[in-house]
Design a protein around this nucleic acid. Structure first.
Lengths: 332, 332
DNA sequence: ATGAAAGCGCTAACAC
DNA sequence: GTGTTAGCGCTTTCAT
């Protein structure tokens, strides 16, 4: 059994396809009687319309794409959920792609999304030449950047206030009497590591605590990055009473290494992370961290994107900075 | 600047649109010279095709839908990733929807996916009358059921071997000398709780250990379910030296309650979970659990679905049972 | 090996 | 308030 077409509905209702179309879209007045006959015909036939044909005609697909490094990274499912919740009411669906930060897969996905005439893209990561992105905008494709500005004016952006948030977390440690505070960071010029390190330094300098390069490592964003950084510090005999980790995963690695070395948390060493992934409240001791507001960011991206698509907002691209909040738990 | 159409390519290459189409699909021999001219024209114009028009014509969209209760539940992003990895090579994209188990949203999403002519759906949860699902199959939409059989023959299915796996985990506790083993389960008739409880009972009976109803609680699948169950057991003065939890989240709640009561794990009480979510290795002590093979299930669902769509497999629906494996960590 | 033309199902001028 | 018709961009008979 094939799907009924609009023509089937029109015939059953004794009207033209135009009238059926307009009772559906409401873009033109239709008499009450005609409407009623169309509606019953639709119900009887189980007509649901053909989105392909509609999209081909209207140049709108009610579809957006979401590009993330890895949906398996606990931050992104929450973002994805926020995006979905923000756009479903407007009838949009979202196509998700994990690219592993691979520029080739990123480009292939975006190309495919253009071929599929999606109305917009949320880019959670960017390894794409801005020229390529620029051509997308030319092709009537709206873009929202998540977590970065891409250094150019291509679309609205939603980012964290990395520097300010980490400074606040660091001040929390200082206020608790910690003075030898280590920073366990990500690789330079990759991700938010540098901004977060700057926040750490802001807080120390603001409190008159001199920066000590021996206390800073930049090993990465993974659990193992955190543990290896701390192991090295301990092996080097560096004295420290607190750790600011670049994210929660690294902070959990820090906890691993401290436990292995017999140091108590927060007794001997206080630890703070960043993101507030679910695991932050699951580890023991639970992690004091900065809520990165993944869900809120997702909804913001989704809303921004459909407002752009619909023309509800126009003109200069917005740069929305979502302030993180310090979540106090056991580790600091 | 508008997207180039196939006609633009044909004109630039000095051939017909038919020839362009066939050099792209390979469904008909095209002379080497014509091919070459078409390819260069495509490159010069940056032609990428219009998936809407193609889908309208071919009745295939290279799109599948994935319905899950909640992408935020740590099990599902891994499944989603598996699905994606299994289908991208074949050119498929996946549209994900979290329904929160709400039948209304589930139905609305499926209806929309039918309107969008997706080639198939992976259903991670089912609150849908089988009649509705049956009509989907009639409409040339292939279905794969994830985690359940839906009690009817509508599509292939990929499930866990809940009973066998939990029995194995329970026997592991028995082999370690535990005899007073509690079961912290989910609500009856909701999710995999009953099957897992049956596995727990199989193992005890197989070892000649009598079942003790006082050791069994069915509070739910959340972290708080686990902790409240254990708190109750302790308050009731029930003696136990091990706990089988219905899933990892509940098991983590069990750890919470035991720690609060000053019981050591695994010294006083051994604990096993189910799923092997990331958090299982993050908690302290790390959780012995059953790997629910989320990624593998995702790839299986994806592969099965596109094999059905392509007609590579036909006939009776397959029921694939993915055996879980016991992952030994610190808690048991 | 290649082209002309029909048609997938819909919406939107345009005409009444 | 309603209908006729062209056309969105593609694939695929059918004819050569």
């Amino acid at each position: 059994m094939r799907q009924p077409r609009i023509e089937d509905v029109a015939r059953a209702a004794g009207v033209s396809t135009t009238t059926v179309s307009h009772t559906l879209t409401g873009k033109r007045p239709v008499s009450a009687t005609a409407q009623a006959r169309v509606r019953t015909a639709i119900d009887e036939l189980g007509y649901s319309g053909n989105a392909l044909a509609r999209g081909l005609r209207t140049q709108r697909t009610l579809t957006i794409a979401l590009v993330v490094p890895d949906i398996t990274n606990p931050f992104y499912p929450v973002v994805a959920r926020g995006v979905q919740d923000a756009v479903t009411e407007a009838g949009y669906q979202v196509v998700v792609c994990s690219t592993d930060g691979d520029p080739g897969r990123e480009a292939a996905f975006v190309r495919d999304m253009v071929a599929r005439s999606v109305d917009g893209i949320i880019l959670g990561l960017l390894h794409m030449p801005s020229a390529v992105l620029g051509s997308l905008v030319d092709r009537d494709l709206r873009i929202v950047l998540l977590g970065h500005h891409a250094g150019h004016q291509l679309g609205d952006s939603v980012t964290s206030d990395n520097r300010v948030s980490v400074a606040e977390a660091t001040r929390h440690l200082i206020a608790a009497g910690r003075t030898r505070i280590a920073f366990v960071g990500g690789e330079h010029e990759a991700g938010p590591g540098d901004e977060r390190q700057a926040g750490y330094e802001d807080a120390l300098l603001g409190a008159g605590i001199p920066l000590d390069p021996a206390l800073v490592s930049t090993t990465g964003y993974m659990r193992v990055s955190g543990s290896s950084a701390i192991s090295q510090l301990l092996a080097d005999g560096v004295v420290f009473d607190a750790v600011v980790a670049v994210n929660d995963l690294a902070a959990i690695g820090v906890l691993d290494a401290l436990r292995a070395a017999g140091r108590t948390v927060p007794g001997d060493v206080a630890v703070v992370g960043f993101d507030d992934i679910d695991a932050a409240s699951l580890v023991h001791p639970s992690l004091t961290t900065i809520d990165n507001r993944a869900y809120e960011k997702g909804t913001l991206c989704g809303r921004l994107l459909i407002q752009r698509i619909s023309g509800e907002i126009t003109g200069d691209f917005r740069r929305i900075v979502v302030p993180g909040t310090l979540v106090l738990r056991e580790s600091a």
